[in-house]
């Protein structure tokens, strides 16, 4: 009886009694969710265009953040900060695009028409190679990533909001808007959707699969860079960054593997759920919910809605 009260009644009473904390928790949760969404977005892009679950997406975020901090360290002192940041960002984007070209050449092209599980294994290998390469080039110390993003805290009527979180939300929002336009309005976007739907038909209208893959992996690399910057600014650039890839998995299960809006909503739900359950149901579970809540939610979803919120329902005519 006490348990039922603690689970079903007490948390809501708390929310009602202390609305400020509730609002702050919700905002915190949503902001954490934005970061999950950013990582999940990279997965969705590659999954949409090739049906491959890119295990290396998290490591790509790490690699991008490492490269960015590394380049910034090597820039001569005395340059204005904004110039250093812009040059370093530009160089990192170039490196991520080069990486996409190399991945297409060395990993994807030899494996054309192989089973998806083989491509998945290849991305698993890729994640180790990238992690090693990042370590080799830039060292394995935890680095501070400071590209001049605002880090102050706003106090809005008693609710504390971190500016960095707001920046991340704006970055994610604009990224999604740009990607949406890119996918629906441009020639390349149309080609991407075509490749995702049918390889053969895409080839027959003269779409070059190789070119499309380079573009997709480049875009995924740039999304990884944004995710890497946001996580790196928050908690420093360290190798545990690559593990956020695992957090993206439940986000994808929730949102559906093929849906860009799904990745965003899924990330928000998981971020929000984590924080609210952590804070308001504390007396029930005693903390550390954040480590497993997302996976539990994903499991529940798998039972009732395996295609996710926005995923394509698989219907086969027999």
């Amino acid at each position: 009886m006490e348990l039922i009260y603690a689970v079903l009644v007490q948390p809501f009473v708390d929310m009602y009694l202390d609305p400020l904390i509730f609002i702050e928790t919700v905002i915190k949760g949503l902001m954490a969710g934005v970061l999950y969404s950013l990582v999940a977005l990279g997965f969705v892009l590659i999954f949409k265009a090739s049906g491959v679950f890119n295990f290396a997406q998290g490591v790509m975020a790490l690699f991008a953040a490492l490269t960015l901090t590394g380049i910034m360290e090597y820039m001569p002192d005395g340059l204005p900060k904004w110039l250093t940041v812009i040059v370093a960002l530009g160089a990192t984007v170039v490196i991520m695009i080069l990486l996409a070209v190399i991945i297409e050449r060395v990993v994807l092209r030899p494996l054309v028409n192989q089973e998806l599980i083989i491509l998945f294994m290849a991305t698993l290998g890729l994640s180790y190679v990238l992690e090693g390469a990042g370590d080799l080039m830039w060292g394995s110390d935890v680095k501070v990533l400071d590209i001049g993003l605002p880090t102050d805290i706003w106090d809005i009527g008693g609710v504390y909001v971190e500016q960095l979180d707001v920046t991340a939300a704006i970055a994610a929002g604009s990224l999604v808007a740009v990607l949406a336009i890119f996918f629906t309005k441009t020639r390349i976007g149309r080609a991407l959707r075509a490749v995702a739907d049918d390889h053969q038909a895409a080839l027959s209208v003269g779409i070059s699969l190789q070119q499309i893959w380079v573009i997709v992996w480049s875009v995924a690399g740039i999304v990884a860079l944004v995710a890497g910057i946001m996580w790196g600014s928050k908690s420093g650039v360290q190798f545990s960054l690559s593990l956020i890839a695992l957090k993206a998995l439940p986000v994808l299960i929730l949102g559906g593997f093929t849906s860009i809006p799904g990745a965003i909503i899924g990330g928000l739900i998981i971020g929000l759920g984590e924080k609210v359950v952590e804070v308001f149901w504390y007396s029930v579970h005693g903390g550390a919910v954040e480590n497993w809540f997302a996976f539990m939610l994903a499991l529940a979803f798998l039972m009732f809605r395996p295609q996710g919120l926005f995923g394509d329902k698989i219907i086969e005519r027999v």
Binding site: R190, A191, R193, A194, A196, D197, D198, Q200, A201, A202, S204, V205, I207, D312
Partner: peptide, 14 residues
């Protein structure tokens, strides 16, 4: 072999 998720128009535009 059509792009099943797209409209007729988008298919032709490809």
């Amino acid at each position: 072999a059509l792009f099943r998720g797209m409209s007729t128009l988008d298919n032709l535009m490809t």
